[in-house]
Simulated assay, not measured.
Amino acid sequence: MGELRIHSVLVTGANRGIGLEFVQRFLGMPTPPKWVFAGCRDPKGQRAQELQNLASKHPNLVIVPLEVSNPASIKAAAATVEKHLGGSGLNLLINNAGILKINSLANETLENMTEIYTTNTIGPLLMGQAFLPLLKKAAQGSPGSALSCSKAAIVNISSIGGSITSQFAWDMIQIVSYRCSKAALNMLTKCQSLGYREHGILCVALHPGWVQTDMGNAAGHQPPVTVDASVQGMLKVLSSLSEKDTGTFLDWEGKVLPW
């Protein structure tokens, strides 16, 4: 397994849960990235307090206002990141921001479906488009032609709930809009892998496990995976990805999941 050595990374939904843990892990690496960009809706709000504390101790951490359901916010975030990078590219984009609303098939609504698709599926699409120039620049500035997360990559945090084959935990929680949004995110990942390969960008969908976060606890059951174990596992997976893995759907332990 290679070591994940990157110059810059952007994590969306970085003020809590998996996103916040990613940020902490990147900052704590033996050779941390020169730039860690943490995207969150309200950087000055109470829910971003831990991020603010980290930023006061780590000058390489930049908190970026970012609402992934808002194209103008995404465009502004891309401009902020580009300004800090000062001519270099963005190695790693982790589309982690996501929302879930508990609803049965019978009670699912247009409003829910629209809101959840906008954040969970359309957001990562627009993020990929907005940050493509910076990802391409990172790929062009990396030696060798082989794809890797140390060169340039888009990582979409998906869910086994989006697997059409597995139907994971249907009897426990239907979450139809969330499942549909993640199935669509998996297809987006495949499309990105096909469209961005020529630019030297690796694209992968990752299931973080059923994790002990606010979202993971929403079903009313204790999730089996800690945030720490999930992110540690995902970083290990990211460090091992290569050309053959672009466009795949993997879990936090590196296992291939069924579409």
Rank of each mutant, 00 (worst) to 15 (best):
residue 133 P to A: 05
residue 163 S to M: 05
residue 82 E to I: 08
residue 156 N to H: 05
residue 127 M to W: 00
residue 87 G to I: 11
residue 170 W to T: 05
residue 96 N to F: 08
residue 146 A to P: 07
residue 105 L to V: 05
residue 170 W to N: 10
residue 94 I to E: 06
residue 119 T to K: 01
residue 109 T to M: 07
residue 105 L to K: 00
residue 158 S to L: 01
residue 86 G to M: 03
residue 105 L to G: 00
residue 100 L to C: 07
residue 113 M to S: 14
residue 152 A to W: 02
residue 115 E to G: 10
residue 169 A to L: 03
residue 67 E to S: 08
residue 136 K to L: 02
residue 162 G to R: 10
residue 106 A to E: 07
residue 118 T to S: 03
residue 93 L to W: 01
residue 145 S to D: 08
residue 147 L to D: 08
residue 111 E to K: 13
residue 89 G to C: 14
residue 106 A to W: 09
residue 76 A to G: 09
residue 75 K to W: 08
residue 72 A to I: 13
residue 106 A to T: 14
residue 125 L to V: 08
residue 131 F to W: 14
residue 159 S to D: 14
residue 139 A to T: 02
residue 165 T to L: 11
residue 114 T to G: 10
residue 71 P to Q: 04
residue 83 K to L: 11
residue 100 L to S: 01
residue 112 N to Y: 12
residue 143 P to T: 14
residue 113 M to C: 08
residue 106 A to R: 12
residue 85 L to K: 03
residue 123 G to V: 06
residue 106 A to Y: 01
residue 75 K to E: 07
residue 95 N to T: 02
residue 68 V to Y: 03
residue 159 S to Q: 15
residue 131 F to E: 00
residue 153 A to Q: 01
residue 148 S to C: 06
residue 156 N to G: 10
residue 111 E to N: 15
residue 151 K to S: 06
residue 78 A to E: 07
residue 101 K to F: 12
residue 129 Q to D: 12
residue 162 G to F: 05
residue 152 A to I: 10
residue 142 S to E: 03
residue 125 L to C: 00
residue 86 G to N: 03
residue 132 L to M: 05
residue 122 I to M: 01
residue 92 L to H: 01
residue 119 T to D: 14
residue 104 S to T: 10
